[in-house]
Design a protein around this nucleic acid. Structure first.
Length: 820
RNA sequence: GCCGAGGUGGCGGAAUGGUAGACGCGGUGGACUUAAAAUCCAUUGUCCUAAAAGACGUGCGAGUUCGAGUCUCGCCCUCGGCACCA
């Protein structure tokens, strides 16, 4: 795509400037971060990228503002660690290997070196001595180490679980490889299969993850998203009697949040995977049931995703007894009941649950209304009644409110030992197995005699063999790598086999913030002394698309490692800020649309600073922005004006007495910009600076400053702009005779007393409509202000023959004359 | 369906309940120039008007208030996330 041409004639050459200062900073190790200093440490991170090969404007949009904020903290006197790394395991590398025959390692490392060059061209303060790269054995070794720790502590386990299966490729697919229910490689429909998989027991932490007491500042939105994901609900586990069937268990347990509707149960539904299904199925239903289970097992993603899908199910032939009223109800299986939630069994109350209602209609089951809108309510139901109401058809519980009944019936069941109040969560355990090559090998050995044997710590890392063969079969190359698979059991020494699955890459990102303080430490994942200096992270920034997965997994990791005793803190990220999405010319950017903004081209044309400024000016960072090509010239124009105005020789100013207004405006600028950058409001911070530049032009033209105050104004402007536009401000800092480097200076401070205005514009309203504005001294008395307002020539006509009801006075702001 | 964010000029966007449209883009007119670009100056919500003055104006409809883009209630639309969770 062609880029916007520069229409500005710069007074300087941005390309030369960028290079000059980037090299100087790099040679001087200006951004080297010591672990300790006389300053307070501040750990500010932005989410590390996947090394896709080319930085696009989205990377810049995430990184430039966070870099500016970190630089700003640095100038506020903190010792700032603002590191960068690469989330370098993952699918695209493997696909490149299969499609183009490039080894994932080479592909990844080439991309990383390219992206590092691009980050360098942005003028970021990343200290590359602290780089973290997750595909290196010295990093993923610790993934394996953590896995062993979690395993030892009962937080990692192996279990059978359904996976996405592509029949064409004969392999398992990760969720992200399933696009609209189809395989992303061969486009055939994906079905479900059961496989033995490894899980992390995140559900142990469901309750603690719901609490955000230990964070300082997180967006409400993200907290809510996590709360919804965890999905806590209160309900009752209630038993239905099966004793008459004489099978292995005398009862079946269901979970419900609507125990008040217990008298309305007309059927029971089990998930097809429920372990009682085979026992409950009577011989004459056997064929039907098995057929249903098989089709369910092979149900496609597409069907499952469809909301409007008909409820289907099949009768097992058996009945259960609802002990509260002795009713016999039929037992069905249906795939709308999920094995993973609650007990995998549901009591069907068609009158008060829409899904049950549809199911009952389809299979012609009874619908018994037990909650009435009011006492006279006898209407028949067109759909489930899910509102609150009064109990009916419910024996001794009739005529009480359903909210009351929830408690009464639960207590009743508990007394009879037929039910118990419980809490259930939607959150599932974290499935970490991936049937892929380019990831961390799971450090487990399977021995015919000893079973599951963890790889001993001393044998870590289990190295990913570099000489794997990549064939377009879709299967993990590790499955065909005998040297990798075959090994000796660490326990008994007999022949054994290695696990060939690798870990989900979210494992890598769940603790990388613990590695930045000591990326090369090799006795442990981290040196506790270093860790204490930096962690937890003071400020984290990144896209909201990671609201649940990455951010919740990281929280889980920290809590689990804390409980294992590795450190004491509870949360990984104390403050979180989510930037919005950047779009281009009103459209989402995509390769197919051909509207992807390539930052490199703009950097060559305009210089890094102009691109940085534009990204921060486009809109409020948290709400995203619209990159409109023509807009960038405005930033170039402005920065050129900053250049021109900064290079004016201050000796030309001949005023001997200070211009109070300039002093006031300069101090206001400092206040406003400081506050705005602090809260990531770069767009308004820049607007203030632009306004100030326009103002300085007037001052210069009218020669309305002393040399000293002019210098102070320019110096303040440069210092405030330095975090956002590091190259040009550094050059101007030098040109104006200051000492290298501007980035080692402090943010200028303002004097609140000097900000106070002497006069203010008083708005005069009549009945809330602005009729006049009058300049008055600050702190004008009410009586005086009213007098001024009433005597205004513009106001007079409105008051002729009018009775004044009252007068509102807001000091220093307005007078509102209320007439009839 | 549920949860969240949002709806303001031609465009991106500003506005602790107190002058709506800061700042920037784009447009128009002018200066400079042989000319153009760049730069600078002026102007730029709509209607009415020669102008002044005025009227209208923040998705729609009500309400609270001396005063509402901002608060309350009820709708409509857009974008993001979740989605048979019993």
């Amino acid at each position: 795509m062609a880029i916007a041409k520069r229409s500005v004639q710069f007074s300087f050459d941005p390309k030369t400037l960028d290079r000059k200062w980037q090299d100087r900073w790099s040679n001087d190790k200006l951004y080297h971060v010591a672990d300790t200093s006389e300053k307070q440490n501040w750990f500010e991170m932005t989410m590390y990228p996947y090394p896709s090969g080319d930085t696009h404007i989205g990377h810049w949009y995430a990184m430039a503002p966070s870099d500016a904020h970190a630089r700003f903290r640095r100038m506020q006197g903190y010792n700032v660690l603002h590191p960068m790394g690469f989330d370098s395991f993952g699918l695209p590398a493997e696909n490149a290997a299969i499609r183009r025959g490039i080894h994932p390692y080479k592909w990844t490392m080439d991309n990383i070196s390219n992206m590092k060059k691009q980050f360098y061209s942005m003028g970021t303060i990343y200290d590359w001595d602290r780089e973290v790269n997750t595909c290196q054995p010295d990093y993923y070794k610790w993934n394996q180490w953590f896995f062993l720790k979690l395993f030892e502590n009962g937080l990692a386990y192996r279990s059978n679980a359904p996976v996405n299966w592509c029949g064409q490729c004969q392999t398992v697919l990760a969720n992200e490889q399933v696009i609209n229910g189809k395989c992303d490689r061969c486009e055939s429909v994906v079905i479900h299969r059961d496989l033995e998989q490894w899980f992390f027991k995140i559900t142990n932490y469901a309750e603690e993850l719901l609490s955000f007491d230990k964070v300082i500042d997180w967006p409400e939105k993200i907290k809510t998203l996590q709360e919804n994901w965890i999905g806590k609900s209160f309900g009752v586990q209630v038993k239905f009697d099966l004793s008459h069937l004489q099978i292995s268990t005398p009862e079946i347990e269901t979970f419900t949040t609507r125990i008040d509707t217990l008298f309305g149960v007309t059927f029971i539904v089990l998930a097809p995977e429920h372990n009682l299904v085979s026992e409950l199925t009577t011989p004459d239903n056997k064929e039907k049931v098995e057929k249903y289970i098989n089709t369910t097992r092979e149900y496609s993603e597409i069907e499952r995703l469809s909301t409007e899908r008909d409820k289907t199910g099949v009768f097992t032939g058996s009945y259960a007894t609802n002990t509260i009223n002795g009713n016999k109800v039929p037992i069905f299986i249906a795939d709308y009941v999920l094995m993973q939630y609650g007990t995998g069994a549901v009591m069907g109350v068609p009158a008060h649950d829409q899904r049950d209602f549809e199911f009952a209609k389809k299979y012609d089951l009874d619908i018994i209304r037990v909650i009435a809108k009011n006492k006279n309510d006898t209407e028949s139901l067109e759909e489930a009644y899910t509102e609150s109401g009064i109990l009916t058809n419910s024996g001794k519980f009739d005529n009480i409110s359903n909210e009351e009944a929830k408690i009464k019936i639960a207590e009743h069941l508990e007394q009879l030992n037929l039910g118990i109040r419980t809490t259930t969560y939607r959150l599932r355990d974290w499935l970490i197995s991936r049937q892929r090559y380019w990831g961390t090998p799971i450090p487990i050995i399977y021995c015919g005699d000893c079973g599951i044997v963890p790889v001993p710590e001393k044998d870590l890392p289990v190295i990913l063999p570099p000489d794997a063969e990549f064939k377009p079969t879709g299967e993990s190359p590790l499955k065909y790598h005998p040297e990798f698979i075959n090994c000796k059991c660490p326990n008994c020494g007999n022949d054994a086999e290695r696990e060939t699955d690798t870990m989900d890459t979210f494992v890598d990102s769940s603790w990388y913030f613990l590695r930045y303080p000591n990326p090369k430490y090799d006795n442990a994942p981290f040196d506790l002394n270093k860790l204490k200096l930096w962690n937890p992270v003071d400020q984290y920034t990144g896209g909201a698309e990671h609201a649940v997965l990455h951010l919740m997994y990281s929280r889980f990791f920290v809590k689990a490692l804390r409980d294992i005793g590795l450190f004491k803190f509870d949360e990984p990220f104390l403050r979180l800020f989510n930037q919005g999405m950047i779009i281009a010319n009103h459209q989402k950017m995509s390769k197919s649309r051909g509207n992807v903004i390539a930052p490199d081209d703009y950097v060559l044309e305009f210089g890094a600073d102009v691109v940085r400024i534009y990204l921060m000016f486009l809109g409020p960072w948290d709400q995203g922005g619209d990159w409109i090509d023509s807009g960038i010239n405005g930033m170039a124009r402005w920065i050129n004006r900053v250049w021109n105005i900064s290079t004016i020789n201050s000796n030309k100013f001949t005023l001997t007495k200070e211009n109070q207004d300039l002093t006031r405006t300069t101090h206001k600028l400092i206040k406003n910009v400081t506050e705005d950058i602090d809260r990531f409001k770069f767009n308004t911070a820049l607007a203030f600076m632009m306004e100030f530049t326009n103002y300085l032009n007037q001052i210069s033209e009218n020669n309305n400053a002393t040399p000293e105050q002019w210098n102070f104004a320019i110096k303040s402007l440069l210092l405030l702009l330095a975090p956002i536009a590091p190259h040009i401000t550094e050059e101007l800092w030098e040109l104006t005779g200051n000492q290298y480097s501007i980035h080692n200076q402090s943010v200028p401070s303002f004097n609140p007393k000097l900000i106070e205005d002497e006069t203010t514009t008083l708005v005069i309203q009549v009945n809330g409509k602005v009729r006049d504005t009058i300049e008055v001294g600050i702190n004008t008395e009410k009586e005086k202000a009213e007098e001024i307002a009433l005597s205004s020539e513009k106001i007079q006509p409105y008051l002729v023959n009018q009775a004044i009801n009252r007068i509102i006075y807001v000091p220093d702001k307005l007078v509102n004359i209320v007439i009839k």
